[in-house]
């Protein structure tokens, strides 16, 4: 049975992000499009960061899920335009990030001047008495913060 674009999309949209498994590649805005060209399936994904190592894992996951459904004529394309920004994160994804202990990006914007230096809410106690420890965290998309309220260290998903 031949699957439609929508059906294929449904099959792969719930793939979890390898680094932040509580959100899916759809919620993260990485999955852009599924297109059929004859018998060929073309899946377009976009990286959050140029060097994001999760892209390869996501690509392999897409291949293995669709292979199970008998789809072998498959191309996973990496697209760069329109550029990914934290705007692509859904509100639901931001809630899930907070629940997972990662402060979501506050000001989702494409304007690089406001990417930096904003007060961040601690995902555990909600305090804004937070300070940055390092611009660079456990993955390329996160920075490392410390909360002055509950003294916990937490990841902040950088505005991008």
């Amino acid at each position: 049975m031949k699957l439609s674009e929508k059906e294929i999309y449904q099959l792969i949209c719930s793939i979890p992000d390898p680094e932040i498994p509580v959100i899916t590649i759809e919620e993260l805005g990485i999955l852009r499009e599924v297109r059929l060209e004859g018998t060929k399936v073309i899946v377009s994904i976009t990286p959050t960061y140029s060097g994001c190592p999760a892209m390869k894992a996501i690509e392999q996951e897409i291949f293995s899920i669709l292979k199970e459904k008998g789809i072998t004529d498959l191309e996973v394309k990496t697209v760069f335009s329109p550029v990914w920004t934290t705007d692509w994160l859904t509100d639901y994804a931001k809630e899930k990030l907070t629940a997972y202990g990662i402060a979501p990006p506050l000001h989702s914007t494409n304007d690089k001047n406001v990417l930096l230096n904003r007060s961040i809410h601690c995902p555990r106690c909600g305090s804004t008495n937070t300070e940055m420890i390092s611009h660079f965290g456990s993955t390329a998309c996160k920075a490392l913060y410390r909360c002055g309220g509950c003294l916990e260290v937490f990841d902040y998903f950088k505005c991008h």
Partner: peptide
């Protein structure tokens, strides 16, 4: 242009 836009965000940091 698209690659530059992507890279610009990173090099800002």
């Amino acid at each position: 242009a698209a690659l530059a836009e992507k890279s610009l965000k990173e090099v800002t940091y």
